[in-house]
Amino acid sequence: MTITSAMPRAKERKTRTRTKRVSSLPAIKLSRLLPSHIDLWDPAHAALVCEYCETWCPITGMQSKVQKLVPHHTGKADEADAIRCRGSNRKIEFDMTIPEWHQALTDAITEASSRQATTVLPKAFSPATDQTLRARAQRTSAGRMADWNEALRTVADTDSNRRLMPAGDAPAEAPAVPRTSLHITR
């Protein structure tokens, strides 16, 4: 099918629709879903996450014999193409009560919060690092200037020693350089 400018768009939908159609897919059992994907706080406005399009969909027929997902599209209203989701009109099997769902949700929240770190602890210092940091904290600006001046004096002495050239034709602390070439005779 080619896409034209006349393609239908998903239109604004009612949250509750009344239809006798039922999906041929097997019924959704609430006990097999994650407790966080079910919303039963207000049974009159119950909803759950559709496993195909992963959007929150209301449950219709809460007062009747058959509860099912509201027919819905896969895309956003007035933006995406009007493609009906496979999970539309799918029956819902309430195999758990609202207090059981509430307890499962509370347990899931407790388990998730126990996995998260509550406080960030700083990394322990080695004794040498700790000693260095404490010494740095106790130093004053005058002490730092004295240390810097001492370092400058040491650097100046080292530079002057590097500039010295050895006296004569031989390097310091090395054998003399031969002036005649060596020839091997037989």
Rank of each mutant, 00 (worst) to 15 (best):
A146Q: 06
Q116N: 09
S126I: 00
L121S: 03
A156C: 00
V177S: 06
S113V: 14
S160L: 12
E111T: 12
T119W: 07
P175N: 11
V177I: 06
P171Q: 12
Q138G: 06
A174I: 03
G168M: 05
A112P: 02
S126P: 00
L182Q: 11
A124Y: 01
D157W: 07
T180I: 13
A128N: 01
G168Y: 03
F125E: 13
H183Q: 13
A146F: 00
L152N: 10
A151T: 02
S181E: 11
L152E: 12
S141F: 14
A170P: 03
V177Y: 08
P166G: 02
A156Y: 04
G168R: 04
L152T: 06
Q116Y: 07
R136G: 11
A112K: 07
A135W: 09
A156N: 03
K123A: 05
F125N: 11
T129E: 12
T132D: 02
K123N: 05
S113M: 13
T129G: 07
R139L: 13
S126L: 06
K123W: 03
D169M: 08
T129N: 08
D169W: 01
M145C: 04
Q138Y: 07
R163Y: 02
A172D: 13
N149K: 13
G168F: 03
T140F: 02
N149M: 15
S126D: 02
A142R: 05
H183V: 15
D130C: 01
L152D: 04
T180C: 11
Q116C: 09
A124N: 02
A146I: 09
S126E: 02
A137P: 00
A174R: 12
R153H: 11
A167T: 02
A176W: 05
R144C: 03
D159K: 07
P171Y: 12
P171R: 14
W148L: 14
D130Y: 07
A174H: 09
A128L: 06
S114F: 05
T118M: 03
L182R: 11
L164I: 09
L133K: 13
W148N: 08
N149L: 13
A170L: 02
R139E: 09
A167M: 06
N149A: 11
R153P: 00
A151Q: 06
D147R: 05
R179Q: 05
H183T: 07
D159R: 11
A151K: 08
T180F: 15
E150H: 08
D147G: 12
H183P: 03
A135K: 10
L133E: 15
E173Q: 15
K123D: 05
T154V: 07
S126Y: 01
S181H: 06
S141G: 08
F125K: 08
P171K: 10
R163M: 08
Q116I: 14
A156I: 00
Q116L: 15
A112V: 01
L133M: 12
P166A: 07
A135G: 14
D157Q: 15
L133Y: 11
P171F: 10
A176M: 15
S160K: 15
L152G: 03
